[in-house]
Design a protein around this nucleic acid. Sequence first.
DNA 1: ACATTTGCCTAATGGCTTTAGGCAAATTAG
DNA 2: CTAATTTGCCTAAAGCCATTAGGCAAATGT
Lengths: 190, 190
Amino acid sequence: MAKAGPAAERVVRAGAELADEIGFEQVTPSALARQLGVRTASLYSHVKNAHDLKTKIALLALEELADQASAALAGRAGKDALMAFADAYRDYAVQHPGRFAAAQFRLDAEAAAASAGVRHSQMMRAILRGYDLDELQQTHAVRLLGSVFSGYVGLEAAGGFSHSSPASQESWTEILGALDSLLRNWPAAA
Amino acid sequence: MAKAGPAAERVVRAGAELADEIGFEQVTPSALARQLGVRTASLYSHVKNAHDLKTKIALLALEELADQASAALAGRAGKDALMAFADAYRDYAVQHPGRFAAAQFRLDAEAAAASAGVRHSQMMRAILRGYDLDELQQTHAVRLLGSVFSGYVGLEAAGGFSHSSPASQESWTEILGALDSLLRNWPAAA
DNA sequence: ACATTTGCCTAATGGCTTTAGGCAAATTAG
DNA sequence: CTAATTTGCCTAAAGCCATTAGGCAAATGT
């Protein structure tokens, strides 16, 4: 069973690397063992099972993503902050598709609570402080932003925009501009 | 190999059912064969392989989803149409979580071209005719709507909103109102 | 009646996951 | 320094899954 030595970290990190190379779904104990030049059974010293491996990669990705977003956000506010955050998110997905897919992995309640997910929503709330929204609207806006970012990047990764014009980058910029405009003019509740 | 008899349809339909029961990811030839009371190998008369099975379920789900959305859209325009379409989308996801997950399955270019994906974007464009957007803005808006719908429903299905208030339904309504407002006041390009 | 097609079966191969039990090198303690 | 412990890995083995090949009986069409 998981003896939690320093090598356990290395295994998870290698798993993240592998995810970017062959896709998160394909990261299995046997594939990872092959990559590490080790027998499959040996991995079970560092990871409980296949699901646990994926969970740990997901947690790593969420941390990394939060770090990047946090760095991008530093010293910015308003539309600047919104765009920097959104770009950090999208850039991460482009540079680390496997890790990004991992970040979408459905965590069980326990893992989710211990994840960097909290940091993500805190950052979004920080961005929204630059707009004039009340507490409740802010929650709706957080959910909207989360939906747009994960939705857009997900569709883009799935190739949804690659066979039609204009280029995705153009829509991305336009959509962020539109969201900024929306946040500055959020309609009163029906 | 796939002899494409009338039973092939039945198999795919049963696969969709099973997806709703145990989750799309868990729908495998062996699980489906168990469900149908048949030997695993027998399925290979109707389906090329596991990937082909998933692809066929995905295509079925996309058709169903397009049908529901199309029905919901009939006779509506403007905000009404937007909300009816969005609700059809979300309701389908709630009632058929496995099928909905299937609809997100990454299709290869060939399958994607033969899918109902085209109908989906046509319907979105139809909705947008009720707003004053030029051709290019319409494309951006289609991508935004697609992102919000798939992103929101995806996060909701992943339990993203279930442990915080307010209830998801409230945000959904508010977000649709906000999107309507945004579409009526789409900002001029930067 | 005969030929074909359909739907299913058994048998077999090979890969992946996971558990159990061990062994040698590195680390820590006395 | 030496002994105990921990770490990291290994072999062996069971069980499940995907997939291919070859065959058989019932339904269907000629």
